[in-house]
Structure formats: structure tokens, C-alpha cells
Amino acid sequence: MTRVLAIMMGAAFILLLATLTLVVMPYLQMSAEAVPPGLKPYTQQELMGRQTYIANGCMYCHSQQPRDPSFASGDRDRGWGRPSVPGDYANDWPHLMGTMRTGPDLFNIGARQPSEDWHLIHLYNPQAVMKGSIMPPYRFLFRHVEKAGPNDKVVNMPPPYGPGSGQLIVTEEGMALVAYLLSLDHTYPAPTLPQAKIDEE
């Protein structure tokens, strides 16, 4: 080849094509997908919790996308829920689907584990409720005080996992994160399922 322009134009043309098929077309198709009526918008607090989830990189170990049982039945059998559909993510900016399952899928964690206290204990020290877990503790989302104020949410850690003396209260950030986790409940019926059959191969 001798022409610089031919190479650069050719390269640009091919990428343009890929953009058309992998960005524009999915965008058009998925924007037209129905949003399930059961999907609730996030509250202000849940959105703040979502930012905490992002800031501390929860998505590097937890996915939010159960797969179709006809493809990977383990996802359903573990109680992670029905396969997700594009409409489930209509309020998600950005998506937090994740690519790792070092920890379990969280698409329906709010339904599976609806206790606020459980989440607070688990975040402060995962070992307290899940002995042998490799999830890091998020102690920085809590504060250790002598005496909790009237508006503080006190966390009662089971011994020996608590701080010993004084009281443990959760920060605004920590409370928001738990609110977000509890909002992860997609057990409502979904109108469309994109994966009708898995038989292409």
C-alpha cells in the first residue's frame, strides 16, 4: 500500500460501520423497549447511595444481570431472579451490570435481604454475618462515638465484631448505600424478554 489517505479513510470507514451496528442500532432498538411498569424511579437518597456504590467500586465484584435459566440455570437457582431486560435499566446512568462475580449478583439483593440492619452489619464487618467472606469491610462509612445523638442511626454489632466501647453510628453515605441496596428489587414481572431461545450455535 502506498497511500496514507486510503489507509486512514479505510480505517475510519470500518469503524464507522462498527459504530453503526454496535452503538447506533442497539441504541435505537433498546430506546424503543418498554419500561416495566413495576420499575420505580430512584429516590434522592438512593441516587446518593448509587454514587457511593460507584465510588467504592462495588461493581468490580458484583454483577447486576441474572442470565436466562435456559442459558445459565445457576443464576435462577441461586435465587438471583428472573433474567433482566433492557427496560430494567432505564433509570441507570451509568449502567452497573458488572463483569465479575467474586461476590453474588445484586440485581435483587433488596428482595433477598430486605433487612436494613443486616446490610449495616455486613458493610461494617462482613465476617459478622458471613464468616470467611473476602469482601472488604467498609468501616469508613461508619463513625465511632461516645454517645449517639437523637437523629443518629445506631448499629448494634454482634460481639466480638463491634468497636468495644461507645456506640457505632452510620454516616449519611453509608445509610444512602444501604437505601440503594434495598432498592435493588426487580421482582416485578418484565414485559419483554430479549433472550427467547439460545440455539444460535
Binding site: V23, Y89, D92
Partner: peptide, 9 residues
């Protein structure tokens, strides 16, 4: 790009 489209992008 919202949600699922965001994931493809």
C-alpha cells in the same frame, strides 16, 4: 447512553 445501551457502548 442510558442503562443497557450504556453497557453495549
Amino acid at each position: 447512553f442510558p442503562g443497557a445501551t450504556g453497557a453495549t457502548v
